[in-house]
């Protein structure tokens, strides 16, 4: 299977998983999922995955760690978030910082 076809299969599979997850929520009795432990784990899994994605997309190149313009850009994004900048502004700002740093170096 070509890489392109494999990506399509992954898109369809992941979409099916996400849809079925939502549907299960609508179909099971509410109290099954209302347990504090379930809610806690689900919320923290979201936090952990997003944090890991921040880390990996910021300092990983290939299979090794590499500090470059991305780290500066993400630091600027963090400041913007602390100042309550909207999501789109944060994302664009990070791109601009990285692009400018790379153009200069």
């Amino acid at each position: 299977m070509s890489a392109y076809a494999a990506t399509w299969v992954a898109i369809l599979a992941a979409s099916a998983v996400c849809f079925l997850t939502k549907l299960v929520g609508h179909r099971v009795p509410e109290h099954w999922l209302a347990q504090p432990r379930v809610a806690r784990v689900a919320a923290l899994v979201t936090v952990a995955l997003l944090a890991a994605l921040v880390g990996v997309t910021t300092v990983v190149t290939g299979a090794s760690l590499a500090v470059d313009a991305r780290l500066v850009a993400v630091a600027v994004a963090a400041v913007a978030l602390a100042l309550r900048a909207p999501f789109v502004v944060v994302v664009v700002l990070a791109a601009v910082v990285a692009a400018v740093l790379r153009a200069l170096t």
Partner: peptide, 13 residues
């Protein structure tokens, strides 16, 4: 265009 950094910032957001 710094889009790799933008992806990292999106996750942070």
């Amino acid at each position: 265009w710094g889009l790799d950094a933008a992806a990292a910032a999106a996750f942070l957001g």
